[in-house]
């Protein structure tokens, strides 16, 4: 899923400083699962913003609303009754950065992101998330025991490890496992360590961001 985290309250307060009536919109997709922008987090941020503004003597009329998703136009459309009657001056989105962009595209309102979209990852345990994919557009993990050297190696090496691997850790940080150590251990366990003799050519990054913004069209699904 997309992993995100809330921006510092101070930054969010500065964003909406000039506004009196704000619609705070959560998302029931990825950011609910990673506890960054679901109904619960919308409640907490909404309360914190109201408290801060009331204390400052500049009360904020803030309404909370959480959509099923913010990355599909049909759900963004559900905001029309609230955003087309002039009730709100601005929108604060707690989705990944797709959400505020979709809202801004549909409504002529000032839209602010309340989250920083951080990475594509998964949860290691309750409250801990890590990066597992950087959407390079051409998955190659089957060559590496099912582990991704693109997202999980600090240098995205195709032929590792480098000299910075020490005791199974990356030289960038002791908190980062050297994925090439993990690949070696797993290939050994799978009895496939000989496959590591293969030298992989330079990766073709045209499927990643180097090809510009990406788009997928599925004619079979179009209405």
């Amino acid at each position: 899923m997309v992993i995100a985290e809330r921006k510092p309250i101070e930054e969010i307060l500065a964003m909406v400083a000039d506004f009196k009536k704000v619609l705070l919109v959560g998302c029931k997709g990825c950011v609910t699962v990673c506890c960054a922008g679901g109904t619960k987090e919308v409640g907490i941020l909404g309360s914190a913003l109201r408290i801060a503004r009331k204390k400052a003597g500049n009360p904020l009329a803030l309404v909370e609303h959480t959509l099923e998703r913010q990355c599909d136009p049909e759900y963004i459309e559900q905001l029309a009754p609230m955003l087309e009657n002039g009730e709100f001056d601005a929108v604060l989105s707690m989705a990944c950065s797709v959400g505020p962009q979709f809202i801004a595209k549909r409504y002529l309102k000032q839209v602010f992101p309340a989250l920083n979209t951080t990475f594509i990852g998964g949860s290691l345990e309750h409250g801990v998330w890590a990066e597992f994919c950087q959407s390079c557009g051409n998955c190659i993990i089957h060559n590496f025991g099912g582990l991704c050297p693109i997202s999980r190696c600090s240098k995205s090496l195709m032929n590792g490890p480098c000299g910075g691997s020490s005791g199974g850790k990356c030289e960038v940080s002791n908190e980062i496992d050297c994925v090439w150590q993990l690949i070696y251990d797993r290939m050994t366990a799978l009895g496939q360590v000989d496959r590591m003799r293969k030298i992989f050519p330079i990766k073709d990054w045209s499927t990643s961001r180097d090809g510009g913004p990406r788009k997928i069209t599925r004619e079979d699904l179009k209405l």
Partner: peptide, 8 residues
């Protein structure tokens, strides 16, 4: 922590 951030 949150209250500290908002001046309470």
């Amino acid at each position: 922590k949150l209250l500290r951030e908002i001046g309470i």
